[in-house]
């Protein structure tokens, strides 16, 4: 039974290679749109994550803080559940960093007799606690220590990144669903054409007493294979688009293997689902 389905599906490709190619290309192109969108979404996500990694709370310390007080503060802050890492930057290191980063002021810094820059603690947060509320909570807790002069964390910056992330997620969901629906409609139409082209065959199968499963299986297999081929084509096209853009316009990261595999599989599943829907309409009865 299974061998019949495989033979029939292969025979269908042989009998109408043009239609099979057209179907795979239609599926491939509609999934390509989805693939490109996936590539953009993935890269936006990667960029946002990189930016988020820079989210940190900086606590500026008073000049008179003792070594013991500094140790207590460092241990306390390090034990906060939100905190990933605490780095102490001494007055000397602060000056050295400033001289490295702000070359144009190097001479001004060199002429100074007293180092005006305060020592600080740079507090990095765990990935799950980089939202505005968590960052603000940590900053407020640190500010309670009397030997902390000021706490900064770029409040607006953190909020903007967070908003961008949420907006990105919502846009990805809406556009992703819209593109998937378009892909399903195109695949559905393509498979319906294939089913209509072989309507007489379906009628004869029903006429001679083939079971519904037997009638459906070759078409489902054909839809699945066409969908897989379309998915692979979409992956190739997306990779082509990635190669064309990467390095010349902007730097992009290629999709992780799991995304690529799921994308091709999604093509197969879409082909299968579209075949199933098209068959349901034509299997009611023979005319």
């Amino acid at each position: 039974m299974a061998s019949h389905s495989v033979r029939e599906a292969i025979a269908a490709f042989r009998r109408a290679p043009g239609l099979a190619l057209l179907s795979a290309m239609s599926i491939g192109l509609s999934l390509f749109v989805l693939g490109t969108f996936g590539l953009v979404t993935y890269n936006v996500e990667v960029t946002l994550r990189t930016i988020e990694r820079r989210v940190e709370v900086v606590a500026y310390l008073r000049d008179n803080v003792s070594a013991e007080q500094l140790e207590v503060l460092q241990n306390d802050v390090g034990s906060f559940p939100e905190v990933e890492n605490v780095t102490h930057v001494s007055k000397f290191e602060a000056m050295r960093n400033a001289m490295q980063q702000l070359e144009e002021f190097r001479e001004v810094f060199t002429d100074l007799e007293v180092n005006p820059l305060p020592a600080s603690l740079e507090v990095q947060l765990r990935p799950d606690y980089r939202d505005p509320e968590s960052v603000q909570r940590v900053a407020e807790l640190i500010a309670l220590y009397p030997f902390v002069e000021d706490v900064q964390y770029g409040r607006e910056w953190v909020e903007k990144i967070y908003q961008l992330r949420r907006l990105g997620g919502a846009v990805a969901a809406v556009l992703g669903i819209a593109f998937a629906v378009v892909a399903i409609l195109i695949i559905g139409t393509t498979v319906r054409m294939a089913v209509l082209a072989r309507r007489e065959e379906i009628v004869v199968m029903q006429l001679v007493g083939a079971t519904d499963g037997f009638v459906r299986r070759p078409f489902l297999l054909e839809g699945f294979i066409t969908g897989l081929a379309g998915g692979a084509l979409a992956l190739l096209l997306t990779y082509g688009a990635y190669l064309a853009v990467n390095g010349s316009l902007i730097d992009l990261e290629w999709l992780p293997p799991l995304w690529a595999t799921l994308g091709v599989l999604a093509g197969g599943i879409l082909g299968l689902a579209a075949s199933d829907t098209a068959l349901r309409r034509h299997l009611v009865t023979y005319a």
Partner: peptide, 9 residues
């Protein structure tokens, strides 16, 4: 519905 193929044979 599943009995129809058997009848048609």
């Amino acid at each position: 519905r599943r009995d129809i193929p058997r009848l048609r044979r």
